[in-house]
Each structure stands twice: as structure tokens, then as C-alpha cells.
Amino acid sequence: MAGNTIILAVVILGVIGLVAAILLFFISKAFKVEENPLIDDVAAQLPGANCGGCGFAGCRGLAEAIVKAGNLEGLRCPAGGNSTMENIAKIMGLEAVAAEPMVAVVRCNGSCENAPAKVNYDSMPSCFFANSLYAGESACPYGCLGCGDCVGSCQFNALHIDPVTKLPVVDVNACVGCGACVKNCPRHIIELRFKGTEGRVYVTCMNKEKGPVAKKNCSAACIGCGKCAKNCPAEAITVQDSLAYIDFRKCTLCQTCVSGCPTGAIKFSNL
């Protein structure tokens, strides 16, 4: 009796398994999607972080686009960089174009000390929402809101909010220059620049208001005095709307502007 039961159970389970296996086999045949195997090969080379830095929804999106286009024009994985692109080029039988690696810089120095809070933000910690509500705790309508939307958007753990200054800090070694934070910052204060080996010089302010107005909210604001532009030997600095901008393609990292800025709004970083 007992033996029979065991045998019966084994037989029933076995039959169910067999039927299911056969079904699965035919269903997978019937619903098979024909896909270029190259896509899988290309996707395997990509980092798989789905950061969106390439402009596609995910790594697979870029892989499909590359295979479909048949060339690498305008298609690039900023996160993977040159080595990844070379590997992909090899698979595709193409020539990879090397590009200068980029890194994110934060163009605001409105720390708690430089730009003291005038009000207290007491809502959802989201820069997007805060931006829709008001100008910010420091009352600077151009500056960092400090809620960390950029940190949340970074797939590579390259950003964190400094607990003292309440500003985002970029970890240059971890940053791959995908640009996800650039897209997610409602104030557009994050910018991609050449990573280089020696460092970057940039204006840590986005305030387009006239000097005295900008200075009222933040002691480290660019007041648009133009001193840096005058003294720059490489003529890399332009001043527009009371705001200086350093063209990183021209900048020679001489740092003349850094020491000359009256409000300390120009920063050299070589972290």
C-alpha cells in the first residue's frame, strides 16, 4: 500500500513535469523573437548601469541603436569610455573614435556659510519639488537647493552631499561623466568638463543677477566684475549677464583667475 502510494506520486509528478517541459518547448518555439545576435554581444560590453548617459532608456537601447545604425556616429557610452567603445567597435568591425573623458563639476558654492538660510525648507527632499515651490533656502534663485536629486540620479556612487556645506561633491575617480546628474538638476548647476589629468578650473556660480543683488544672498557669488576675463592669458573667459564662464576647451589651467577673483567664485579642483 505504502509503496504503491510512493510510486503513484512519483509517476504523477513525473508526468506533470514532462507535460510542462513539452509545453514550454513548443511555446518558446512559437513565441521566439528573432533578434540580431550582435545586439547581445554589444550589450555585454556595456556597463549595464542603465544610467541613460547615452540618451537611450538603457544599455540595451544603445546596443540596439548601434547595431541598427551600423556605425558609431553620435552613439557613445560615456560611462564605459574609450575602452568600451573600442571593444564595441571591434565587434561591429568599425573604427572607434577616442573622446576626451568627461567629469561632472558643481557650479555653485552657496554653502551654509556663504549663503546662510533665510527660511527653512520643510517638505519632500526633492530639488525638483523645491524648485517649483520657491527660490531656495538661501533665496538665490540660481543656486543649489541641496536636496540631492543629483545624488539619487547617479548610478556610480560618485556624488554625495557634504554634511557641512550641504552642496554636492563629485568623486572624480568614480564619476564616469554620463551626465545623469546634469539632466536631473533643476537648476542646471552641474556641468560636464574634460577630466584631464591636472584638474579643472571653473566658476562656482550660476547667478545671472547684477553683482550687488547676487552678493546679498551669497558671499561667494560671481558679481560679473570681469577681472578674470581681462587677466586671462588664454582668453578663455567670457562674462555675460553678470556671470563669468570659463571655456574648458581653451583653459590652460594657469589659475590666474582663481587667485584674482574678489569673491572666490572661481575654483581649481584636482581631487
Binding site: 519632500m124 525638483f128 519639488f129 517649483s132
Partner: peptide, 10 residues
């Protein structure tokens, strides 16, 4: 409502 407004505007 903060989150809903954010989601709604996006």
C-alpha cells in the same frame, strides 16, 4: 501631495 505634484508635473 508633494510627491504627487512632482509626479504630475513630470
Amino acid at each position: 501631495l508633494d510627491t504627487v505634484k512632482t509626479g504630475k508635473s513630470k
